Amino acid sequence: MKIAIGCDHAGYPLKVAVKDKLLKEGFEVVDFGTDSVESVDYPGYGKAVGKAVADGEAEKGIVICGSGIGISIAANKVKGVRCALCTSVEMAEMSRRHNDANVLAMGARMIEQDLAFKIVDKWLETDFEGGKHLRRINMLDE
């Protein structure tokens, strides 16, 4: 599976850790930056990851900023993206199971690395249930 990943300066250290984890697990990762802790603006990175997912360049995406809020809003501006900001394993599971989230957002200043890894694992292993949830997903695209 190919995963697009991007972050701002606040999310950079966690992005590096998540990217390394994914690569070790055999995922293909397309990194849209940033590449340091030097201050940058998050919207471009969120949109770049969202566009990669929406255009089919990657199957899923992960975006990270300080709180996860700004970069999730940026990703959700891209038509076809369903970016879910998750701060718990349960949220990650439900974002996939019920919402078919195709981009995961996390806040590097909100959660510890160990929890972030658990969130990523649950998010990647959980399938969309479909059924009544598909009708709701379709409503989002209208």
Rank of each mutant, 00 (worst) to 15 (best):
D121F: 10
M1L: 01
K132R: 14
T87I: 01
K24Q: 00
N99H: 15
A74D: 13
K21F: 09
A17D: 06
D20Q: 13
V53W: 00
I3L: 05
H98E: 15
S36C: 06
D121V: 12
D55S: 14
Y42L: 09
V18C: 00
E25V: 01
A101W: 07
A54W: 04
C65Y: 10
K2W: 05
G6N: 00
V30D: 05
D127Q: 12
K132P: 04
I5C: 00
D35H: 12
G66Y: 14
D100F: 15
E25N: 03
N99T: 14
A10Q: 12
L140G: 06
R136D: 02
L124T: 04
R97V: 12
E90W: 04
A105S: 15
R109C: 13
V63K: 07
A17M: 07
E142L: 02
K77G: 13
V63A: 09
A10H: 12
R96L: 13
V40E: 05
R96C: 13
R135N: 14
S67A: 15
P43L: 14
D8T: 06
Y42S: 08
A48R: 10
D55F: 12
K47A: 10
L85Y: 08
G107K: 11
G26R: 00
S95V: 11
N138V: 05
K47G: 07
E93R: 14
E57D: 13
L23W: 00
D127S: 13
I137P: 03
I3Q: 03
L104I: 07
A105W: 11
R82V: 09
E90Q: 06
I111V: 11
A58C: 01
E25I: 04
I71G: 08
S88F: 06
I111E: 10
S72T: 12
Y45L: 00
